[in-house]
């Protein structure tokens, strides 16, 4: 367990947790959501998710909602009710921030994915403004910013960023009843053999990244 343990506050649902995962189509949000849900099922917990599948997977904004625990009836998380927001991309963190409840934990990558629209006449990508907004909105002890470039450097690929972020989230206690071992079991059960070692390393790297801060 890292020093920076942001234990889930008492207002979280008993034994359950609501997580919103956000990113860009192609970043592996659906897989991250599946890993989290399988980890919950492995603990014998009831789970419901809502995925973005379809046109948005072609580089659009993508979210997955994961609800764990007996109180979860709807697969969608209500506005201001997510215990954790795990974002693979900072602008998507900002876009989905209204889902985070007061006192909820934001785990975000710091690496922007600049959309084509920002280079062809659409609104520009202002990274400093976005990071400033995230830091102003979430208390320092509720915010984990993962250095995506460092993770990519260590792992040799950007493909496992989804698992790095989950590792960071679990290490600060943002995933409620789900522990690192649960995620590890889920990775082993659902990731193809050839990516398993990479994802296990990614999970550990995520935990280490938060311990360093």
């Amino acid at each position: 367990m890292s020093e920076k343990n942001l234990a889930v506050s008492p207002s979280a649902p008993q034994g359950g947790v609501s997580v919103v995962l956000a990113g860009v189509g192609g970043q592996g949000i659906v897989l991250a959501s599946k890993l989290l849900a399988r980890a919950a099922m492995g603990r014998g917990l009831h789970v419901r998710t809502a995925e973005t599948i379809g046109m948005a997977q072609r580089g659009g904004s993508v979210t997955s909602h994961v609800r764990i625990g007996d109180g979860a009836s709807s697969p969608l998380v209500g506005a201001g009710r997510a215990d954790a927001l795990v974002a693979l991309e900072p602008a998507e963190a900002a876009r989905q921030l209204p889902f985070l409840r007061p006192g909820g934990v934001l785990v975000t990558s710091d690496a922007p994915v600049v959309p084509v629209s920002a280079m062809t006449g659409g609104p520009a990508y202002d990274l400093p403004a976005i990071m400033g907004y995230l830091r102003a909105s979430v208390a320092p002890d509720r915010l984990v910013v993962v250095d995506a470039a460092a993770a990519e450097g260590t792992l040799g690929t950007a493909r496992a960023l989804n698992v790095v972020l989950l590792g960071a989230a679990v290490s600060v206690g943002a995933l409620g009843p789900i522990g690192r071992e649960d995620l590890l079991t889920a990775v082993r059960a659902s990731v193809p053999e050839r990516f398993r070692e990479l994802d296990e390393r990614a999970l550990d790297l995520g935990s280490a990244a938060t311990a360093k801060e």
Partner: peptide, 22 residues
């Protein structure tokens, strides 16, 4: 009560992210 307390910071202009050809 799900709203945050205090004055929320101004939301910056976010890039538009419609789906695109790969």
């Amino acid at each position: 009560a799900t709203a945050r307390t205090g004055t929320p910071p101004a939301v910056p202009t976010l890039p538009a992210r419609p789906p695109v050809l790969c």
